[in-house]
Amino acid sequence: MKPAQFDYFAPAKIRDALALLEEYKDEAKILAGGQSLMPLLNMRLARPRALIDINRITSHSYIRRENSVLAIGALTRHREIETSPLVRQKCPVLAEAVRWIGYPQIRNRGTMGGSLAHAHPAAELPAVVTALRGELRVIGPAGERTVKAEEFFQGFFTVALEPNEILSEVRLALWPKNAGFSFKEINRRHGDFAIAGVAALISLNERKECAESSIVLAGVNPTPLRAKRSEKLLKGRKITRDIIETAAALAAEDSDPPSDVHGSADYRRELVKVIVRRALEEAGARAMQNEK
């Protein structure tokens, strides 16, 4: 099918985009990479009166290090993140996760901001940004505000964005250099949305016990799911096989996966156990390696 009619604007400044949003209110849609919105327009599942294309706002495409934070502009394409030496060096879990998004064509166009605003329950970036305790910068008519990732993702395809607001930047806290990370996902084909996925980070204290960990699941809950009981269990403990098994079982218990054509809820819960185990083994081993 083909999109229904709409008015089209391609402002070069975020200010002009905000003014258009004010004018059209919830009858407008922002167009970023289009890799989620265009299919919806083509299938007429979305029929906005105005489309505000933000691709000409080049000021919002960047990856910068600001002390202990990695700041990424909302219009930064998946491909730029995938190939950025800075990301690979300072935030390898993000570099690893982004490779799992779709195919080369999708990654060439799709953006960080679009992926977070769209908030597909199985998407990689919302999970990783939550795992890195990310903060999202949002611009609206009243100015700028910052939302924690955990509060940004509110429900199934629902985020803390008003119709007159634009997501402008994501800020990721960098983990210590010796932290171990892992990103695992299971799908039928590389490039499909995850049936279940997990981002994990572990840092160790001087006794080689877990100082801090972060475990966030994708695809098994309406929003990215922080496995808080597993994180709590690891804290202050040695990363042994038994602890990992228990942490993985807790994460499986805490997930609330859907049943669909890709797998039943029980199957997904079983996958969670497997991938969390693998992720913690890998993140733990990497952290130990880094300690040497």
């Binding site: 289009g34 083509n42 080369p104 064509q105 060439n108 166009r109």
Partner: peptide, 8 residues
């Protein structure tokens, strides 16, 4: 590369 069905 880009998919021309996902671009205007």
């Amino acid at each position: 590369t880009a998919q021309s069905c996902l671009m205007l």
